[in-house]
Design a protein around this nucleic acid. Sequence first.
DNA 1: AATATCCGTATTTTT
DNA 2: TACGGATATT
Length: 676
Amino acid sequence: MFDALERLNPSQREAVEHVGAPLLVVAGAGSGKTWTLACRVARLVDRGVRPERILLLTFTRRAAREMLSRAERLTGERSVGRVWGGTFHSVGNRLLRLHGRALGLRPDFTVMDRTDSADLMDLIRGDLGLGTTERRFPRKDTLADIYSRTVNAGAKLRDVLERDYPWCADDLDGIRQIFEAYMARKREQHCLDYDDLLLHWHALARAPGAGERVSKMFDHILVDEYQDTNAVQADILAATRPAGEDLMVVGDDAQAIYSFRAATVRNILEFSERFPGTRIVRLEQNYRSTQPILHVSNAVIALSPQRHEKTLWSERASDRRPVLFTCLDEADQSDAVCRAVLEHREQGTPLKEQAVLFRAAHHSDLLEIELSRRNIPFVKYGGLKFMEAAHVKDALAVLRVLENPGDEVSWFRVLQLLDGVGPATARRLLAGLVPTDDGGVSPLTKLAEVAVPAQARRELDDLAAVARECTDDVAPAVQLERVRRFLQPVLVRRYDHAETRLRDLEQLEQLASGYPTRGRFLADLALDPPNSTSDLAGPPLLDEDYLVLSTIHSAKGGEWDVVHVIHAADGMMPSDMATGDEERIEEERRLFYVALTRARDALYVYFPLRYHRRNHAYEDRYHHAQLTRFLPEEVRDLFDGRATFEDAEVIEEMPVPAGSGAVGGVDELLRGLWAD
DNA sequence: AATATCCGTATTTTT
DNA sequence: TACGGATATT
């Protein structure tokens, strides 16, 4: 512990030792923020603060685990594991199960994920008869987006529609109706969506009596990645610690990349106004990257019109400049990445210490094929569609109906698994099954009497058997195994690749085997879904060396010796979904900045000159790409330029600039020969 | 009237 | 590839 404190720089030490007044730590990328937080937790425990009275709010559960295990190593105390650590959502979940009764919540409420919310809205839209006419009405995903944004920003629906969804503004009344019904149904069915976890936590914190009890549970509150919190999250903190005493937040406005989730950088900018007497500490020394990498990163963020008054510096000199790699096309880019990765491995950097980063999950598709072809193992973070897959949702829907028979969305899904039952029949059955209050007979026992098309009878009886066998005392993994047997014929009938899908369900059983109860398993799965291919693969893979592939969003907080940023082309980075709006472009710029600052020793940025158009498969059409606008000439000069091809090839491939008869500068060359 | 099936299209980022 | 919309089939 002493050693660790000695090694901190003065600002870090201040952040670790400070107690009392609210503390805002503005921590640049790579400035030892995670380490500082871990030291602070360790120091608090060292001083005699009981671990279970420390609340550590992080952006992912992984981040919390990481910090706590570091703190544990510092103090040598296993008790550090008792710290309340996790995301706002997971902590909200735990607190509400303990104290939610004060708000009229049952402790066994169901947590709905994003798609569940959208599905419930869709169900309601059908019931209300909205969107059935020719007039187009926002789709379920749009409805869920609008709802979430409105709630998280604490804004008026009318304003949100006008500003962010102008094409839906005409449907204000219908949307309002759906939202009203959505709230009521969730309440009846004991379901909470992601936003509810925050809203109810906020309500709990403000409730007379219960609010004080919750507030008194914690002596110290530490919040990481504060730039990516939203208005409700800031309100929760303010309600729990009105004067901000022993409240510490850490963040970096230059790394704010979650405004699409209604996060607002105002939280960090206005922290000291909200909590008078705030002590501000800045961490600007970067311990991660070499100076040439920082030159590039600083230059990129300096072009932002918003002021990020911070310049990172490092003592790590190096003569290895970042490399800007120009490639012919995507295939060429994949090839270049593979070669660079293997080259670094030859020189002693294991695959695990290298990462490939990209804007959108599918940007790595081609590379993944190439990596498999060359037998280079990799793990991909972000964009995992496992929970989205129809068969996984089917299996979970069955479990959820067992857990909470009032769960309408899950019933709707389960009933449609039966042969000959579509949306209409399912809707009709729903009316008879779902209890409006807790008075009646459990719908599970009614299953046997329900009238269904003849061909559905067998499967329905089997479902009733599942319900009888999967009592609460049966382990979740065993229940899942029973559900898989029920689903087997269903999957074969309904989907292609039933084999693969059934194997996915076996993976799900693996996941479930770590949980004591079905409820815990389901809530955890909704709050902390498997995020990488390694979360699903068994332990053997973890021993091996593997390359890391990650979306930039999922790479937040990570660092690697060698970082490869691919698709540095306009349209990919910034995404063309984000162009047109200044604010969103700036967020893309910060995203690019986050990617660059992940690198310790070597940084490669790849730019394919042209992209093949996938839509027209009949023709080998391609279009020429532009280098990302975030690398104008003055920034490019800080890179070493490299290309995967000889100049002559490019001259052949490149289109002749419009209006110019000269080719490849030959005229200039010749003229130079006979000019004096 | 309800379900099955086909076709076209659009596909960011995540608690 | 998965979803939504429209048409075909039971």
